[in-house]
Design a binder for these strands. Sequence first.
DNA 1: GTACCTTATTTTAACGTTAAAATTAAGCTG
DNA 2: CAGCTTAATTTTAACGTTAAAATAAGGTAC
Lengths: 343, 343
Amino acid sequence: MKRRVTLAEVAKSAGVSHQTVSNVLNNRSVVREETRKLVSHHLKQSGYRRNATARSLKTNQSNLIGLVVPSMTNSMYAEVAQAVVREAERRGYTVMMAVSNRDAEVEMSVVHTIIDHNAAGILISPSDVEGKASKLIKDQGVPFAEMLNRSAFDMCDVYEADNHNGARTATNHLIECGHTNIGFIAGVFSSTAQSRYEGYIEALKTAGLPMSSELIVSGNYTREGGLLACQQILDSGRHPTAIFCASDIMAYGAMDELAARGLRIPQDVAIIGFDDMELSSLPGVSLSSISFQPAVLACRAIAQLIDRIELSDPFADRAYERVPCSLVVRASTVTTQTHRDAS
Amino acid sequence: MKRRVTLAEVAKSAGVSHQTVSNVLNNRSVVREETRKLVSHHLKQSGYRRNATARSLKTNQSNLIGLVVPSMTNSMYAEVAQAVVREAERRGYTVMMAVSNRDAEVEMSVVHTIIDHNAAGILISPSDVEGKASKLIKDQGVPFAEMLNRSAFDMCDVYEADNHNGARTATNHLIECGHTNIGFIAGVFSSTAQSRYEGYIEALKTAGLPMSSELIVSGNYTREGGLLACQQILDSGRHPTAIFCASDIMAYGAMDELAARGLRIPQDVAIIGFDDMELSSLPGVSLSSISFQPAVLACRAIAQLIDRIELSDPFADRAYERVPCSLVVRASTVTTQTHRDAS
DNA sequence: GTACCTTATTTTAACGTTAAAATTAAGCTG
DNA sequence: CAGCTTAATTTTAACGTTAAAATAAGGTAC
């Protein structure tokens, strides 16, 4: 590990004190123009780079931001992570990334580590509904926001999709297509999963349709989980003609199972997902879904978080953004070619 | 920002010196058992957490690892990132994530930032074939490895797929299916793209098939790029009956275009990709591809990097792992149902 | 000519930790 | 019991930076 050039070394070579060099680096107006030029020259020549660690220790503010997501194999979170990382880069911040794997204990641990590194702010998509991690962050006084999921800790900025209305819209779409026996593949316990469940229930109620617990099975936000849930629903003996999946990923698993049984989509069973992932529009997939642009949401969240960090504006109102969802109809719910990709 | 408990404060409350507390924290054997217990108790009670920044400044070693990838919307890199982040977490490291967006200048900038933060090591999937970033990292004496791509800088650990053989296998598969007019959608300029191109060429040559520059078009590793390249190939007037795409993502774009033109896969045009992404196995997609488990590769790369950091073993041989690729045949190249998913 | 600004720069101290040196206490040896 | 060894602890200094205080030089007012 090669030792890097320090401020003191540059100072010596330029024949000034280290503080003057520091002043030049930080654009303090006290420095005489002539001196500034001299020092700048030596800075450039030496290839000097600020030691972010030392700076962070002294000023007690890093330009590190923590990002905690449940998973990254779900391409929605990958998109979100990319949006966050790039916006952070643009504004001079570096992202410390952590994956909680939907485990509350892991989540606490990574949040601790992030705080240990003196993060200036944290963006979290909480896995633990109780909000222990959020409480911890708040206790440590670190600016933060919740994203795509909400924990019981209800005292920070929240950015989420309008999951309830989205789920209702999806279910209504199936009802409008004439389905009366509609299965639901739910997510794991989380605010988002809960809202989507409630939206589904509300739509059924409003339409006066009966609901059956046998038609509601929980997946675990994976393709495999969707497949298993689909199996269970199909084997329930309730003969569903449509299934609403709380995420596209799980819908893919359901499609696997339907294909394996030789059931046609949508003639035998219609399918609609949630998230409208990139690949749902592939011609061979053509999965109807609920769209809400998570990257845009993430971008807003990180931008606002950095604003808060830099302005340290504790009086700004707590943000609560709930972006609208829109229905994307594709071949998995309607047969007429004309309606395909009516996004 | 709430001030955190410091070592000195714990020392005061326990009635010992700060150094003793430090010794307890670092499990130094000099501490008397009785004292250790006393201090441990006060540590726990105060909720003390090590200040990673201060520690890093003093010891000149952080437990931060930089990860630089070209993109994250490509789910292959998302998988890789997840693998790296989780293995790093497991070993007590935190990942600073950066996206270069395939821009050499951005890449240099993020690498600089990562080094500024005193990263203990860096894992990079270089975008710049010249390897300026790799040279910079090496110059700064930071342990690092290249992954999934190789730059001209040929003096570090490299982990990549056997792209050449993979591409040859893919092309041979098409040839064995009876195709003689085979298009190629290439990647952008990179070692990986180059190797895949060479594998394609070699297969054609070996089979004694003519090659045409009109059948070789470069995409940019996006679905949109694949679509445009496919258009160009189909409009060339060379009537290809099969297309080999240097990545699954681009293959998806090609499939979009084929569907738009009403061409059947594989009857009119067969398609094979590279990377075997998760969703290529969806029943409606069924894209034949070349598989090589990037997450496994990434996991090996990060594990080895951490080993190097911790053992600081400069005498260990430079690693060069080139993992084999395997052919996955699906419905996009063969019609018989029996061969589907013969992974 | 002394007192008092203003401007540019330097000196000192501090952030929280660890390494190294110094101190203290206790035990042993001949 | 002087002299030495060992064990446990404390003191000092340092990592590279920035904040705050101190200094120096030059100008202005009366």
